[in-house]
């Protein structure tokens, strides 16, 4: 089991190591980590910290994609939940009720998506596109078009605080990843989700309640997006309905793909998706550290992602299987 697991995530770890090595080559001071203001400070920490929203989105997205679906609305749900959280603290709600209301908003968005997909049987890409477009409008209605700023220490702690010198967002995505992995892998849930992704009708005929599971999976995605939205708002001490989570749904899907989960559904690995999210953030941070003019940002990112995906492509994997026996003969 352990060896199989390591073999599963080996390509992702190798890629992450390669990207990090590349950054360290361009920017030699990369590994300098120090303690500032009671929290760890350094570029590797930045990657873990800034990657938190995409990592959280990738957790939910992995499960959704494993069922053969896709959730395009996560970026907009981030904006909604960030706006809800900011609105709540400005109304003098306590931290607990603010988080409860905001996370419930994320769950409600998940129920909406799940209802469209599982009950009305609308294709996931279209069903979630509705909330992707409408969600930002909803968030703007809550913030009334302005950036809702706040100075609530508790909420700010979610974005820029630290526990034992580790930034809170890092702990949150690690905890969420561990929790969801445990739930789906220590029970039959993961297997059932994969069964739905491989063949929904067959899984239903063999007694899997696909409808409920699909709704639950979209709710998980909504919950993860809500947490990501709270972190994003807390980080800048304000809810920016126009820009919070903008295009992050695409980064989250990319993280899942780099993690080796097929967009057609079926077998999935949350850990590999999380490493995928870190690879994306490492590329982003590396570009910022490298000092290239901003016009190159997107081209460099696209180039690196292309190399990663080509290296992981099935065609190349087939090619390597032909090479392996030759090695063993030597």
């Amino acid at each position: 089991m352990n060896a199989r697991f390591l073999r599963r995530i080996a390509p992702q770890i190798a890629t992450l190591a390669a990207v990090v090595a590349l950054i360290a080559f361009v920017f030699p001071g990369f590994f300098d980590i120090s303690l500032a203001n009671g929290r760890l400070y350094g570029s590797p920490i930045d990657i873990l910290n800034r990657g938190a929203p995409v990592a959280l989105l990738a957790i939910g997205m992995t499960l959704v994609i494993a069922t053969g679906g896709i959730d395009l609305s996560v970026g907009a749900v981030m904006a909604i939940c960030g706006a809800v959280a900011a609105w709540c603290v400005r109304q003098d709600y306590g931290l607990v009720s603010t988080l409860a209301v905001s996370l419930s908003a994320g769950l409600a968005c998940g129920v909406w998506n799940g209802f469209l997909v599982a009950v009305l049987r609308i294709q996931p890409i279209v069903a979630t596109l509705i909330l992707m477009v409408a969600g930002r409008g909803i968030a703007q209605l809550i913030t009334e078009g302005a950036i809702l700023t706040f100075n609530h220490e508790g909420l700010i702690f979610m974005g820029s605080g630290a526990v034992f010198a580790i930034p809170t967002p890092v702990l949150l995505w690690l905890a969420m990843g561990a929790l969801v992995t445990l739930i789906v892998r220590r029970s039959a849930l993961g297997l059932l989700i994969e069964a739905i992704g491989v063949n929904q009708r067959a899984s239903m005929l063999s007694g899997v309640n696909a409808r409920v599971l699909i709704v639950a999976v979209y709710m998980t995605s909504g919950l993860c997006a809500a947490l990501a939205g709270i972190i994003a708002a807390a980080d800048i001490r304000g809810a920016d309905a126009n820009n919070a989570g903008l295009w992050l749904e695409l980064d989250a899907i990319l993280a899942v793909v780099i993690g080796g989960t097929s967009l057609l559904g079926g077998r999935f690995s949350i850990v590999a998706s999380l490493i995928g999210a870190m690879i994306i953030q490492a590329v982003n941070t590396g570009i910022l550290l490298s000092g290239f003019p901003p016009e190159f940002n997107l081209v460099i990112k696209a180039g690196i992602i292309l190399v990663i995906l080509v290296l992981q492509s099935p065609a190349l994997r087939v090619a390597t299987t032909f090479i392996k026996p030759a090695r063993s003969l030597r």
Partner: peptide
């Protein structure tokens, strides 16, 4: 944006 301003300043 604020978020990108913060992230880029960190780097």
């Amino acid at each position: 944006t604020r978020a990108k301003g913060k992230e880029v300043m960190e780097s």
